[in-house]
């Protein structure tokens, strides 16, 4: 290795994943679970951790064996590696956080088909050495987690008046006729919110689709 572990190039990889080419707002990947698990911050955080771990380690594994995979069956190889990792995450969640795992229901399993994982494997890990791939997976996972937790915070505060289960809306609001916005907890609220977040992020980063 000619370069240090956190050289300029590697820092750029991290920054790309976190902000410039954020998986949700720029690459349009992994929207499904970004919306489905964000009615509460807790589930959002747990899924984020799971996804970041799976992305980072599947990137490493695929990057290690990238020169031995025949290109016409690579999707199946990738799916196998990813599902093995997801099974591990699922079993760990079931053992140590059973309630959350029940709440997440099918969405832990759906990490397998989460486009971020496959997208990064195809776009990055198939052509880069393990350490870079690990950084890329980690950064993209964290970039995704950022959006997920942000949506979770907004939906939980305005939809239920709580944050991580604690009441944060002042009782005085309710006394003066404030009502929790139930729409936030339903599907349309999630769609609107993500639309607005994408709008804001793209206004700041200056990216737009033609």
């Amino acid at each position: 290795m000619g370069e240090s572990l956190l050289s300029k190039k590697n820092q750029k990889i991290v920054k790309n994943g976190l902000w410039d080419t954020n998986p949700v707002t720029f690459q349009v990947l992994g929207i499904c679970s970004a919306l489905a698990v964000t009615t509460q911050v807790k589930t959002a955080i747990v899924l984020s951790i799971g996804l970041t771990v799976v992305t980072a380690f599947s990137n490493v594994v695929i990057s290690l064996i990238r020169n031995f995979i025949p290109s016409n069956i690579r999707i199946i190889v990738q799916l196998t590696v990813v599902s093995a990792l997801v099974i591990t995450v699922d079993q760990i969640l079931k053992a140590f956080a059973y309630d959350v795992s029940k709440q997440l229901s099918v969405f832990v399993g759906l990490i397998i088909t989460n486009c971020i994982v496959m997208g990064r494997l195809e776009a990055f890990a198939m052509g880069n050495p393990p350490w870079k791939s690990f950084l890329d997976g980690l950064a993209n996972g964290l970039g995704y987690s950022g959006v997920l937790v942000l949506i979770g915070i907004i939906r939980e505060i305005f939809g239920a008046g709580t944050l991580l289960g604690f009441h944060v809306m002042p009782p005085a609001f309710y006394a003066n006729g404030y009502v929790n916005n139930g729409m936030m907890l339903l599907a349309p609220g999630a769609f609107f919110l993500l639309g607005v977040i994408v709008w804001v992020q793209r206004s700041i980063s200056g990216y737009s689709e033609s």
Binding site: P188, F192, G195, V198, R202, S208, S210
Partner: peptide, 23 residues
């Protein structure tokens, strides 16, 4: 449509409306 809203942004907002209809 405002430039940053094009593509993904407006599609999400529309899906919200569509999803409201389906509700």
């Amino acid at each position: 449509i405002p430039a940053p809203l094009r593509g993904l942004g407006i599609t999400m907002l529309l899906s919200g409306l569509l999803s409201m209809g389906f509700m």
